[in-house]
Amino acid sequence: MSQFTVTGRFKSRDGFADFETTIDAENENVAREHALSQLGSQHGLKRTEIDLEEVSAQ
Rank of each mutant, 00 (worst) to 15 (best):
1 M>C: 12
3 Q>R: 11
3 Q>V: 09
3 Q>L: 12
3 Q>K: 13
3 Q>N: 12
3 Q>F: 10
3 Q>I: 09
4 F>G: 00
4 F>D: 00
4 F>Y: 08
5 T>L: 08
8 G>Q: 02
9 R>P: 05
10 F>N: 08
11 K>C: 10
13 R>Q: 15
13 R>S: 15
13 R>M: 15
13 R>W: 15
13 R>T: 15
13 R>F: 15
14 D>N: 13
14 D>E: 13
16 F>Q: 12
16 F>D: 10
17 A>L: 08
18 D>N: 12
18 D>A: 11
19 F>I: 01
20 E>H: 02
20 E>K: 04
21 T>Y: 02
21 T>L: 06
23 I>F: 01
23 I>R: 03
23 I>A: 01
24 D>G: 11
25 A>S: 08
25 A>N: 06
27 N>T: 05
27 N>H: 07
28 E>R: 09
28 E>C: 10
28 E>Y: 08
29 N>K: 15
29 N>Q: 15
30 V>H: 13
30 V>L: 14
30 V>G: 10
32 R>D: 01
32 R>S: 02
32 R>F: 02
32 R>L: 03
33 E>G: 07
33 E>I: 07
34 H>E: 14
34 H>V: 14
35 A>R: 01
36 L>E: 06
37 S>P: 11
37 S>K: 11
38 Q>M: 08
38 Q>G: 04
39 L>K: 01
39 L>Q: 00
39 L>P: 05
39 L>H: 00
40 G>P: 07
40 G>W: 03
42 Q>M: 13
43 H>M: 08
44 G>W: 00
44 G>N: 03
44 G>D: 01
46 K>Q: 11
46 K>P: 07
47 R>W: 01
47 R>N: 07
48 T>Q: 13
48 T>W: 11
48 T>H: 14
49 E>H: 03
49 E>C: 04
49 E>F: 02
49 E>T: 03
50 I>Q: 00
50 I>V: 08
50 I>P: 04
51 D>W: 04
51 D>Y: 04
52 L>W: 09
52 L>A: 09
55 V>K: 05
55 V>R: 05
56 S>M: 11
57 A>M: 14
57 A>K: 15
57 A>H: 14
58 Q>T: 09
58 Q>S: 12
